[in-house]
Simulated assay, not measured.
Amino acid sequence: MAPADRKIDADKRPGRGAGSNDSGRFERLSRADFDDGWDLPEDRGVLRTVVSDEVPRSAITYNTSPDLPFDRSLNPYRGCEHGCIYCFARPSHAYLGLSPGLDFETRLIARPGIADVLARELRAKRYRVAPLSIGTNTDPYQPCERDRGLLRDVLVVLAAFRHPVAIVTKGTLIERDIDLLAPLAGQGLVRVGISVTTLDRDLSRRMEPRVPAPARRLQTIRRLTQAGIPVRLMVSPVVPALTDPELESILHAGAEAGASAASWVMLRLPREVAPLWRAWLEEHYPDRAARVMARVREMHGGRDYDPRWGHRMRGEGPYAQVISQRFKLAARRLELDRPQTDLRCDLFRVPPRAGGQLSLF
């Protein structure tokens, strides 16, 4: 559990997932609150979201992970106001000198100009087209996108280049961009993954406090599919002894909403996520905390997390096998086990620059 000296009172963090703000693992010094006799009540107000800007030097991030079905991704934002307590991306905030706890949810970094940087990278002669994944670290449709519009700018660039893109989100703001996504879908250039962790509104509000309600996300699936945009339902993460009883119900709801495929990922607790998660369990579900962690450790050789390739996403052992089998049976019954069509890469073209000479061919 997080040290008491960094725990933030619940009334100071409404709508937040983490309960503490421990220093990142790369910091030489740790932070601790103490009473020096001078603190005033107004100095300890409710935590607000602050968005800073970063000038992006690059847009595309490449990876060689054998666990991932893509080799490149783009993230318009660092940190995520959705505040999902289980988010595996929290440790990335430590690289910024910030806490993976409440800083991850309240001290965000926007990357204005990332669309222009992306266009420059796509124009490079050495560039070789392959599907670009967006939302694989932090959610591109988190609340600040409503004001910043960075992802929409990126989609405009991708449309101009006819570049394939896969988007993962919990945000219903994606409906704003149906006018861009539908034409891309018509060319076989886009697919979307919508994550639904639970159908229980109260559990969702506690576990992923600033994410749209589950029923609202299902409505988004329906609206996207009605516009001809293929959607994959993502049951992610499956939380042992907390959300796992809902597995079949979530799949059924997603199929009814129009999802054409489904996937699942087990709860992952890398680095700082583990103590944050344990503290959250003790605060919100103390009666189930021991049972949840027993199941987690059962799948990871007695540890909170096993980072090995091929194991970190699903775990191993009897419990993990049962969840996998339940998913397969339900997905097959609901016809959600069909592979998605590959995104097209043959339509990629470099558009002429504004005011530039047009090609004769």
Rank of each mutant, 00 (worst) to 15 (best):
M299L: 12
V265T: 14
F327Q: 11
R48F: 02
D342R: 15
T197W: 05
G45H: 06
A130H: 12
A185N: 03
E145P: 01
G356L: 10
I167F: 04
W264K: 06
A274P: 01
T136C: 11
L242A: 08
V238K: 11
R303G: 05
V55W: 03
D287M: 10
A320H: 08
A32V: 08
L122S: 07
R349T: 15
S359M: 10
E246V: 04
I323E: 10
S249W: 05
P237Q: 10
D9P: 04
G19E: 05
V51D: 02
A241M: 13
A115P: 03
V168H: 06
H300S: 02
I194F: 02
G355M: 12
L150G: 00
G45S: 12
S249A: 15
L132P: 02
R216Y: 05
V156N: 06
P164F: 07
D342M: 08
E175F: 02
G83Y: 02
M266F: 04
H300V: 02
R326M: 03
H82S: 09
D22T: 10
E316G: 14
G258L: 07
P214Y: 10
A253W: 02
M299Q: 13
T61Q: 13
D36S: 08
R57N: 13
P209K: 15
R338L: 13
E272A: 15
L151N: 03
H300C: 03
V156I: 15
F361W: 14
V211L: 10
G24V: 00
F348S: 03
R288L: 14
D11Q: 14
D153Q: 15
L181W: 02
G97A: 09
R308P: 02
S20Y: 07
W264I: 01
R210I: 07
V117G: 06
L347N: 05
L251E: 07
I134E: 04
D179R: 08
G97F: 06
